[in-house]
Amino acid sequence: MSAAKTKAQSIIDGNPVAVFSKSYCPYCKATKALLTEMGANFHTVELDQIDDGAAIQDALEDMTHQRSVPNIFIAQKHIGGNSDLQAKKQQLPSLLKEAHAI
């Protein structure tokens, strides 16, 4: 397993909610705003602000078949991107409770 894949997996495993993001991305901002509004405790990795961000994005694509950001995980389950998260708005409170993120 590559170092980037190991790092991504440890972030996913170590946080109830993990958001792989880019600081300038409007969809990432919408995701973070929704999670903040829900009172979620989430960990964000800004891929454009870390040295191995591109490698982590490649590793996430291998793991999830999704290249775009945000790439969202709740309770170690891949949720998808911002549109997937917004579509789950009704279930989000219970998903976050199950993940012990609120």
Rank of each mutant, 00 (worst) to 15 (best):
E46R: 09
S21C: 06
A55T: 02
V45A: 06
D51W: 02
S10L: 08
L35T: 14
A30H: 04
S23K: 09
M38K: 15
I12Y: 03
V19W: 02
N41W: 00
A54F: 08
H43D: 01
A18V: 12
T6L: 12
K32C: 13
Q49T: 10
D13G: 09
D51R: 14
K32P: 12
Q49H: 13
S23C: 08
L34V: 10
F42M: 03
I11R: 00
I50Q: 06
L34T: 07
P16S: 06
A8S: 02
T44K: 08
V17R: 09
H43K: 15
A18W: 09
A40C: 03
S10C: 04
A55S: 12
A33G: 04
T6N: 06
T36I: 10
H43V: 07
L47A: 12
Y24I: 03
K5F: 04
T31Q: 05
Y24M: 08
G14R: 10
G14M: 12
I56K: 00
C28K: 10
T31M: 02
C25M: 10
N15T: 10
S23V: 11
A18E: 02
L34S: 06
A8F: 09
Q9T: 12
T31H: 00
S10K: 14
D52K: 07
C25T: 10
K32F: 07
D13P: 06
G14W: 05
T44D: 00
L47T: 11
Q9Y: 02
D52G: 07
L35H: 04
H43N: 14
A33F: 01
I56R: 02
A54H: 13
A54Q: 15
G39S: 03
F20W: 01
L34G: 06
T36N: 14
C25E: 02
I56W: 02
N41H: 12
T44Q: 14
L34P: 11
A18K: 09
K29T: 05
T6R: 10
F42N: 01
F20N: 02
P26S: 09
E46V: 07
I56S: 05
N41E: 11
K32D: 02
S23W: 06
I11T: 11
Y27C: 09
A33Y: 00
L35D: 00
V19C: 04
D51H: 11
D13R: 14
C28H: 00
I12C: 11
I50T: 07
K22G: 08
D13K: 15
I11K: 03
A8T: 07
S10W: 02
D13M: 08
A40H: 10
C25N: 04
I11Y: 11
K5G: 10
K32I: 07
K5H: 03
E46T: 09
A18P: 08
K32T: 14
A55N: 13
I12T: 05
N15L: 03
A54Y: 01
A40T: 12
S21A: 13
A55C: 01
L47Y: 04
A8H: 04
T36P: 04
K22L: 05
P16K: 05
M38I: 07
T44G: 03
K5P: 00
A33H: 10
D48Y: 12
N15M: 12
S21N: 11
Y24E: 00
C28V: 15
A33C: 01
Y27W: 13
E46H: 06
T44V: 15
M38V: 10
F42E: 07
L34K: 14
